[in-house]
């Protein structure tokens, strides 16, 4: 299996651990990642200029298409925006014409049908839970994990096509494969507050706090994320703004899976997480 790897802007600069952990598990699972130089997916500018945002995504998709493998991104915001671009470009002829007219100057062209996958989809749907399970050598038993779904990959379902938007199971299934237990927490599908971080800290913090308290009430040992922004929010931002909230660490899914696959914590960038997760007895190898 081979994927064009699209880490987006933030992972290399802000969350290199995500990059390391992703590469680590893909190597362990025998999936090849093709690196290439991409531009931003356009998500940050969508508030300002939808078309510019979609053009950015279209360029990424067109570049991936030239390489000729499906695109995989670990960031849910990138995933969402790329999916929105596919939807709108497929839907709106005027937009498609305008975008392709610009891309043509670089001999690029957006075409429908480029597969865009999020990390979790690759693991569950493309590779399959069974294949992941056979690679697990150190089941992460006795860890209670709150799976944080992340909004931009999940909704709107008719555009992003990630999982059932109201009753998704992909994340819990993938947590179960690592041997850990996915806990029930009512707010699992809610927003982490990251999109408002630079805009309205009061509301952003409240949203985050509610989720952390909810996860705590559900008895979670950790919040597991699969998105750059969500992880940044629950890790670094949380540490700075909510020092007194329940001390639940945030762990990236590939870090959790990596441990189960027998990769050393350092190789997964676990030491870079600001809120360190101390495994309970028998939790990690």
């Amino acid at each position: 299996m081979k994927y064009v790897y699209f880490p987006g802007c933030k992972i290399p600069a802000w969350l290199p651990a995500y990059d390391r952990a992703t590469r680590g598990i893909f190597k362990a699972l025998g999936i090849d990642l093709v690196d290439s130089e991409f531009n931003c997916c356009g998500y940050p500018v969508r508030h300002q200029h939808l078309e510019a945002s979609l053009l950015s995504s279209a360029r990424v998709l067109a570049l991936a298409d030239q390489i000729g493998a499906p695109l995989m991104t670990p960031c849910q915001c990138c995933y969402g925006n790329l999916r929105h671009a596919q939807y709108w470009l497929g839907e709106n002829r005027v937009l498609r014409r305008r975008v392709n007219a610009i891309l043509r100057k670089e001999n690029l062209r957006w075409k429908p049908g480029i597969r865009v996958r999020h990390l979790l989809q690759v693991l569950k749907e493309d590779l399959g839970l069974a294949a992941v399970a056979t690679a697990v050598v150190h089941p992460q038993k006795d860890i209670r994990v709150a799976a944080h779904y992340g909004c931009h990959a999940l909704r709107p379902a008719n555009i992003v096509g990630f999982d059932d938007p109201q009753a998704p199971t992909i994340f819990e299934d993938l947590i179960a494969v690592t041997g850990a237990t996915a806990v029930d927490w009512p707010l699992r599908l809610n927003c982490c507050g990251a999109p408002l971080w630079e805009k309205n800290r009061v509301i952003s913090t409240r949203l985050m706090q509610k989720k952390i308290e909810d996860a705590d009430q559900a008895g979670a040992d950790m919040i597991c994320t699969a998105c750059t922004y969500c992880q940044h929010q629950f890790d670094q931002v949380r540490l700075e703004t909510l020092p007194h909230a329940p001390p639940i660490p945030a762990v990236l899914y590939p870090q959790l899976l990596g441990l189960a696959l027998g990769i050393a914590p350092a190789g997964l960038g676990m030491n870079e997480n600001r809120i360190q997760w101390t495994p309970t007895e028998g939790g990690t190898p």
């Binding site: 802007c9 130089e37 991409f38 531009n39 931003c40 356009g42 940050p44 500018v45 300002q48 200029h49 078309e51 510019a52 945002s53 053009l55 950015s56 360029r59 610009i102």
Partner: peptide, 12 residues
């Protein structure tokens, strides 16, 4: 030439 948001400048 390497800027990741450069394509945005084509429309803004």
């Amino acid at each position: 030439l390497h800027c990741k948001v450069a394509p945005i400048q084509l429309l803004i």
